[in-house]
Amino acid sequence: MTAERTSLEASAWPPLREELRGIAPYGAPQLDVPVQLNVNENPYGPSAEVVADIAASVAEAAVDLNRYPDREFTDLRTALADYLNTDGGLGLTADQLWAANGSNEVMLQLLQAFGGPGRTALSFAPTYSMYPEYARDAMTNWVVGRRETDFSLDLDAARELIREHRPHVVLLPSPNNPTGTALPPEAVSMLCEAAATDDHSGIVVVDEAYGEFRRAGTPSALELLPQHRNLVVSRTMSKAFALAGARLGYFAASPEICNAVRVVRLPYHLSAVTQATALAALRHAPELLGRVDDLRRERDETVGWLREQGLRVAETDANFALFGTFEDRHAVWQGLLDRGVLIRETGPDGWLRVSIGTPGEMTTFKNALTEVMKAGS
């Protein structure tokens, strides 16, 4: 074996797909600091009563862990439909719901079913950084348009981009991550109509991971499901439900879309433990969602305070705020970290994102940012 051949084989190990070589895995920094405000978690954990119900439900499920779980998770789909019908849904039924291990798996399944080689997915930047990775993993062409300077959509430009590229999947977070911008209903309807023409069919996925945090008067895209058969509205139990560790994401759509996704799901993809945990949490929905109003108030107070410091802040319907702009945002991020506060360095150049925490955590953040800004002035 020649030295040249040995070198070539070594450089090709392991035999990874070429387009994946050199790419770092996705992930926000996981650092042990006193105040962690970087991944949009709910800072309020479940109560002792909720924990006890989850534990009892999991214990009951554990008796039959030698058997595979209900692969259609019918009880959970029914409970999710009942919940959504209290928050924008209009008569949703179990056959219009689908769930998976977090919104990440939901999105990947949608792209596996409706994307793929020779097909296109489309979104508008800045937006969630995982979307192009979902497309890549499903071998789907990725097209990205641009948002306006206030992070809204130019609807005419969006329509033209869809007409030009004829995507099979359009991904639209509302509220948007990392900006917090919500989509008005007329925008969702227009994009659904643009994505489905006489000679082309595409689905529009409105990702409402932060939907429960939207401001009063901001409707959910769930209300539009009866009007658009190509609309999918996704949610998660990671944020408002304070169940990030449980990994349960789901979507509402037509029965035909739900059935299509069943083709690409892995066998028994939702464990019995996950199903039991989610069902127990849904039984306590009013309590678990009880802190949402507190987080909305804290968010609005934080936005007001940031603006009082002379900073720009994007309008937000989520449990985070995107703020800036800074000549050296990394220096600001590092300065906060040095003071025990971890936020997210994400979004357009010069911007930073802070998750909304408890009042005490937000006070610590404000004090630290004041110090950092004074040190840099």
Rank of each mutant, 00 (worst) to 15 (best):
P184W: 09
S234I: 05
R329M: 02
Q112I: 09
R262W: 08
G290D: 04
W351K: 04
L8D: 14
G360C: 05
G310H: 01
M139R: 14
T346E: 08
R291P: 12
V332H: 00
A100H: 10
M237W: 05
I203W: 00
A12N: 12
N319Y: 03
P185Y: 09
H200V: 06
I343P: 01
V354F: 05
L90T: 07
S355T: 15
Q109P: 11
P25R: 03
R307W: 01
L282Q: 01
M190Q: 13
Q112P: 08
R163H: 15
G89K: 10
T78K: 15
P132V: 03
E164R: 14
V63L: 11
A253C: 10
T274Q: 08
F320R: 00
R71C: 15
T302G: 05
E298D: 11
T179L: 05
P167Y: 04
D338W: 00
E301Y: 09
E18V: 15
L110R: 00
V303A: 09
P34R: 13
M190L: 14
A12F: 02
R166D: 02
D294R: 08
I54S: 10
E18T: 09
N85Q: 13
E301V: 13
K374S: 09
S47D: 07
F320E: 04
Y83G: 01
L122G: 00
T370S: 05
R67W: 02
A135T: 05
P219Q: 07
V50C: 02
G350R: 00
D156Y: 10
F320Q: 06
G324E: 12
E72A: 12
H330T: 12
L16A: 14
P43E: 03
W351T: 07
V58L: 13
G335V: 06
A24M: 05
